[in-house]
Nucleic acid binder design. Structure first.
Lengths: 137, 137
DNA sequence: CTACATTTGCATCATTGTTGCATTTGAAGT
DNA sequence: ACTTCAAATGCAACAATGATGCAAATGTAG
């Protein structure tokens, strides 16, 4: 299992409290987490701006990625499987429990773009119910 | 050509200034428009809250739809071609000129969801360059 | 023309994204 | 272990956006 320190060192980032906190939370979770979900029971452990800037830094370094959902909310997830080099970013969002999962490599997409248009990236969000919410309903 | 009044009457909505303004702007444009793009040269024609509530009403009635882009910005477009009944909502976003176009019916998408997951809606945003921006670069 | 529900404008608040700046801190070198 | 300094943090502050309550204005049915 890769450690938080290894991730930070590999990207020439200092080993600071906020970075370690965010990365360890994301490593613990398979799902993507919002800022509040990340903070969890420690909402004031770090300043709001520090949190914001740390997430931005981690994103710029290609360690995490930002997922914007259809309701304008934002979640963050670790880049596993070299997602940073992929053109396709697809996620599942459960409408009931709000959980967000990465679906990298499990989606196919084709678009017939207007003439001369160029495609760089594709962002997909599938809304629906996750297995847990299907079973308990 | 369908008129603003016909749209409003068909949905049991009163023929008010803000509604007529927004709908006529959207009818004029093929592209999706942000709140500021809609307001254009008349930023204070209506109160901000009125604008906000009118967009919400039009969306709830299925007359327009909201497009959330990857940078958290929001645009609005008329529901043409009975888009309100479709499961797939795909849009193109030009990274250079910021124009957003609906690609309804021109995209195919398949996802291999985890076991027992249920899909309701699929939101796709393709980022890239539009034809105009490709030519002038 | 009247009546009344709907819509609007205004005040106000919450959340989120963002910047500048002074202080603190990680880690490299001695 | 100590010094040094760029990098990171905390704080103040501001902008944009989403949202609600309430009084005033307005569309439209009768």
């Amino acid at each position: 299992m890769i450690t938080v320190e290894e991730i930070l060192n590999a990207h020439d980032l200092r080993n600071t409290g906020c970075r370690k906190f965010i990365l360890s939370e994301l490593l613990k979770n398979d799902a993507a987490l919002s800022e509040n979900e990340l903070k969890g029971p420690y909402p004031d452990l770090f300043d709001r701006v520090t949190f914001y800037r740390t997430l931005k830094t981690l994103e710029e370094k290609g360690i995490i990625h930002r997922i914007v959902l259809n309701d304008n909310s934002v979640k963050y997830a670790l880049n596993r499987h070299h997602q940073e080099y992929e053109e396709m970013h697809s996620h599942f969002h459960c409408e009931k429990c709000d959980e967000v999962l990465c679906l990298s490599g499990k989606t196919k997409f084709e678009a017939e773009l207007p003439k001369d248009f160029i495609k760089h990236e594709v962002y997909v969000v599938i809304e629906g119910f996750c297995a847990d919410c299907v079973h308990q309903s």
